[in-house]
Every structure is written in C-alpha cells, then in structure tokens.
Simulated assay, not measured.
Amino acid sequence: MIHLIAAIAILAAVQVWGDRLGDTWYVPLCAATAAVLLLIARWDGLSRADLGLGAASARRGLRWGLVLAGAVLAVYLVGLALPFTREAFLDERAAGLTAGELTFRVLVRVPLGTVLLEEVAFRGVLWAMVERRRGSTWATAVSSVLFGLWHVQPARGLTRANAAAEAIFGTGPTGVAVSVAAAVVGTALVGVLFCELRRRSGSLIPPVALHCALNSAGYALAWAVAHG
C-alpha cells in the first residue's frame, strides 16, 4: 500500500506545484514524474507487462491505436462540418497560438508531456497497482476517479476559453463551479474508457493513441477554425 500512496502523493505534489515552474518546465516535469512513477512500480514488483508496456501486447495495441486515432479524426471532421457542433471548436487556448507554438503543442507538449504522464500514471502504474490488489473493476474505478480529480485545475478556466462551454454554463461563479464538476465527471468517464482499452488490449498503446488524437487533433482543428 505504501507504493500506491507514494505514487498518489507525487501526482498531488506535481498538480499543486507544477504550475509554478512555468511552461518551459512542463514537458521535462511530466517526463521526470512518469519516470519516478515507473520506478515506484518496479519497487512494487510490477513487470513491464503488468504496466501495459510488454512487447507481447504491443502489436495488438498498435492495431487498436491506429483504428482509434482514425475514428477520432473522422468524428472531429464531421463535427467541424456541421454548423451546430462547430462552435465547440472555438477555443481561445488554441486560437492564440502561433503556427510554431501549435506545432510544439501538437507534436511535443501533448504526446511527450500530457499524454505520457497521464497514461503512465493512471492507466499504467495506478491501474496496475490497484488491479493486483483488488482486481480490474476496482483498478478502473480508482484510476478514473483520480483522473477526473486531476482535471479540476485546468477545468476552472474552461468557460473563459471555450465558446460552447461559455454558452452552456456562463461565466459566473455558479456556472464555473458546475462546469468544473461536469468536466471532472466527464473526464472520469473518459478514464473508464481508457482503462477498458488498456485492460482489453493488455497495452498502454490504445489509450495513448486515443488520448493523443483527442488532444492534438482537437488543438489543430480549433486553431484551423480560428485562423481559417
């Protein structure tokens, strides 16, 4: 149990103190935190296969990952083409980026920062630790709840940055609180999907591919709408 507590404590510390380091340190911090979590997992006796990093499941994981990434892109393009869903792509966080900043975010910050840390942490280390002790149902529940809570801080600015969220929730204190709660619940449900992909495939590759496609393609299309 001490290993699980240590992993959660490290993630909590990164969430609380990470923003103070600034954007320059974001990717190195995420990579370093993922490495520390993997060391804790090995200290706990977990193998690469336990963590979804085994070679035996990699080929199956790659097949799943390609299909999932393609499906995300297709859904995004349909959403972009329909007038009543296009507003969801109006996001100030993407609109304010230069072409160089967008390229860095899509190809470096998202895959090597956000996705690397979150998938290693929530679908790799935490899921494997709980699964070994309590089974896959508990592993998915604990991992997904923590994944939802992990997004409390970024969700606080959602209504100011996204036009669709502002239209639904407004920008007052109550609207912000409701939007944060909705984001936490929604992210936790996405976490359940990611965990199920990891369980069924035996690999971290499918949730990594889906996560990258959702975030990177979302930024790219939001930027394209803003500059189109």
Rank of each mutant, 00 (worst) to 15 (best):
R134N: 01
R133T: 07
G79R: 04
W138D: 03
V72I: 14
L77F: 14
A94P: 08
G61A: 08
W64S: 15
W127V: 13
R86L: 08
E101A: 05
T103G: 13
R134L: 00
L117E: 01
W43V: 15
V130A: 13
T98K: 08
E101C: 02
V108L: 11
A55E: 13
L51A: 06
L38M: 09
V67T: 10
L68C: 12
P111S: 04
E119H: 02
L146P: 10
V78T: 02
A139M: 04
G65F: 09
P111C: 07
E118V: 05
A49P: 04
V110I: 10
L39Y: 12
D91C: 09
A58Y: 09
L77G: 06
G61M: 08
D50Q: 00
F122Y: 14
P111N: 02
A74V: 15
L82N: 09
R132N: 13
L90S: 15
E92K: 11
A41E: 05
I40L: 14
W43P: 08
F104H: 09
S47C: 07
L90V: 14
A95W: 04
I40V: 15
L77R: 06
D91A: 15
R42I: 09
L66Y: 00
A121K: 00
L116K: 04
V67N: 03
M129Q: 15
L73Y: 06
G79V: 12
W43Y: 12
T114E: 05
L117H: 02
R123F: 03
L107Y: 08
R109V: 13
R105V: 15
L80F: 07
P111L: 02
A141W: 11
G54N: 11
S144L: 01
F122Q: 10
V75T: 00
S47I: 08
G113K: 06
V120I: 12
T137E: 11
V72A: 04
V106A: 14
L107R: 06
V130M: 09
P83I: 00
A88Q: 08
S144N: 15
G70K: 12
A141E: 10
V106I: 07
T98H: 00
L51I: 15
L66R: 09
R60C: 10
S144R: 05
L77W: 14
L117D: 06
S143P: 11
G61W: 01
V145N: 02
A128P: 04
F84V: 09
R123G: 09
P83L: 04
G61C: 03
L66F: 05
S136P: 03
T103D: 10
L38T: 02
S57T: 01
S136H: 01
L80M: 11
W138L: 07
L146Y: 06
